[in-house]
Design a protein around this nucleic acid. Structure first.
Lengths: 356, 356
DNA sequence: TTGTAGGCGTTATCAA
DNA sequence: TTGATAACGCCTACAA
């Protein structure tokens, strides 16, 4: 007494088969592209399939094969990450994969990584073939280890590295970026440098900071750098104030990212400092607003689309080799070199401004 | 001779059951929250489930129930749509739904809507419960009708309405926006108005254009409006040039969107026209760069996050009523009123500039 | 060339 | 309180 074939859509192989008086398994074979039926039968089947608008059920295929051709992406929602997602999407789409997207808004140190775990579960329950993830911070790594690695689900980390280097990683060479920033300022003649660093629990912050500091150290004792760590990537007002009021006042400041750089603009103005004449400012990220600031911000441009594309490509490789039960390929670590974009917020140091 | 329970992960109910010497169906019942086992047994099962890290297989549930708790979103990739996606995502996540995201890059009239159809198929094959879609243009409606409506898959259209009003829609009240733009300019004393309209096959363009024109008409015969239709939302250089060189030259121009407005800035400058003194410009969209232009752009702000949230909420309603086999709820049409954001690109008309 | 049968992980029904 | 069984749509052996 069940209702069957009541809807026009959602037709299955059995219904095709019944209508043609053949067995369902024959339909399955033909649809799989195997030439195991007579030409007429093949034609009939394919025609009916077309006519009825039959569509395969990938849920079932997923259950059977253990492959859903679906990748989960857990990433924060902002312009930068949208571009990463764009790269991921395009690569996956080309390969016939679909993308579950989970915006992970906890930009900062989120003590309730429970939410992040829920996101992972939501993907695991849907049996994604792999997960591409931007971790909120280092310490959550343990959880992912248990929740993803132990299940044998391939995972690629993007943007922020996490502590145990078990995972493939695609991101920016933050350390090189920090070095580029320092070299740029040193070349302009600045010797008294300042730095607003991001939270040290985040790998990007650490990299940028270390790169900047090591380049200054390598330059020799004539150059010095005062680093102040901000608790987040923005809202660093007190730290910026502290840095700009230190003695001697730095003639150039490297901000951990463009948001902090924009805050420096505001605070510098409130102190009567002109950019770049009294203070050179260099940011990190080349976010959308960077060229629109007054003066336009000198910054380091990252490569979000490529990061996404490469992360996805890497994921597809891992999925393929897992399926073929090949030995797991060695752990990859891909880092894109950021490029220095020189705009109006940095200039050669003025001799006079050295005294305070 | 098959390999079973070889992996730590991907454990199923049967394995839990075997380990405890009970039947799999009992495990199923307990996990479903039904109190049909003895307290000790319940405890044992739940503990083992926890310990083994069992996770339900939503693929199977999907096959059985016909509900995957998954929604497909087909939308272009840019800042505006990212915000819509954000709204959709948050609403779906709250309800335990996951989101397949497909970036549909064919911003303009894409003759190869074949690609769009492929996207739809990719979602159909994964048996999404519903689809939220921003159509590329009106004419593709037929395809969706066949491919989605006939299958009984709920669909919500966002941003751009399509011809047969069968579908629920959430977007901006473009017509009201056009009216607001016209009224703003008329209030500033402008009487000779110009308009760069978008392609008329797109509902948003039509709405904005009609709203603008009807407001001018309602004002009376002392005001006039010259409308020129651009083939796309940007790259309207020739049309802009034509408009700005028409006689009499408009003292104020309404651009179909902010991109076109930005182009007007460039061309006006090349003609020696100052904004807003010689030419008032008003855009549509309040895109990220709008406040950063010089002068900052007066424009109409849309509500992308709310559009997304409402589209998702509507979708969930439809899914629920479909599942309960209630009569289909009436077709909804939700339009958010854009708000006028007055910045520096519009000002009162100068008496002298009326002559050419 | 075509068909039969078993199984994938789960839920629901009905029996013990 | 617990278990056996059918069903979901598909694929893969194996049989005719």
């Amino acid at each position: 007494m069940k209702t069957r074939k009541d809807k026009f859509g959602n037709i299955n192989q059995r219904e095709i088969a019944n209508e043609l008086g053949v067995s369902q398994s024959l339909v399955s074979k033909i649809l799989a592209g195997r030439n195991e039926a007579s030409p007429e039968m093949t034609g009939k089947i394919l025609r009916l399939v077309q006519e009825k608008g039959y569509r395969p059920n990938m849920l079932v295929r997923g259950v059977l094969s253990g492959k859903t051709k679906t990748i989960g992406v857990v990433i924060p929602a902002d312009g930068f990450f949208s571009e990463i997602v764009h790269g991921i999407h395009d690569c996956l789409t080309r390969a016939g994969y679909a993308m579950f997207l989970v915006w992970n808004d906890d930009h900062m140190v989120a003590p309730d990584s429970k939410k992040e775990l829920e996101y992972i579960h939501s993907l695991v329950d849907r049996r994604v073939d792999g997960i591409i993830l931007r971790p909120t911070h280092d310490e959550v790594s343990q959880m992912y280890f248990n929740e993803v690695h132990l299940r044998g689900i391939p995972m690629v980390i993007v943007v922020r590295e996490i502590a145990p280097a078990h995972y493939d990683f695609v991101g920016t060479d933050d350390r090189a970026g920090g070095e580029l920033a320092a070299k740029h300022l040193l070349e302009l003649g600045h010797r008294c440098l300042g730095q607003i660093a991001g939270p040290s629990i985040v790998s990007t912050s650490r990299g940028r900071r270390l790169g900047f500091e090591s380049a200054v150290a390598d330059f020799g004792p004539t150059a010095s750098c005062l680093t102040i760590e901000a608790p987040g990537f923005s809202n660093a007002k007190t730290q910026i104030l502290e840095l700009l009021q230190s003695t001697p006042r730095p003639t150039a400041v490297f901000a951990a990212n463009d948001d902090a750089a924009a805050e420096i603009y505001v605070i510098a103005a409130s102190l009567g400092l002109r950019i770049p004449d009294d203070l050179s400012v260099i940011g990190f990220g080349d976010l959308v607003f960077a060229p629109h600031l007054t003066p336009p911000l000198t910054t380091l441009r990252q490569n979000p689309y490529s990061i996404g594309e490469n992360a996805a490509a890497l994921m597809l490789t891992k999925c393929a080799s897992k399926h073929k039960k090949k030995p797991a390929p060695e752990v990859m670590n891909i880092k894109f070199l950021p490029t220095l974009v020189v705009r109006g917020s940095t200039c050669a140091v003025k001799q006079r401004s050295q005294s305070v």
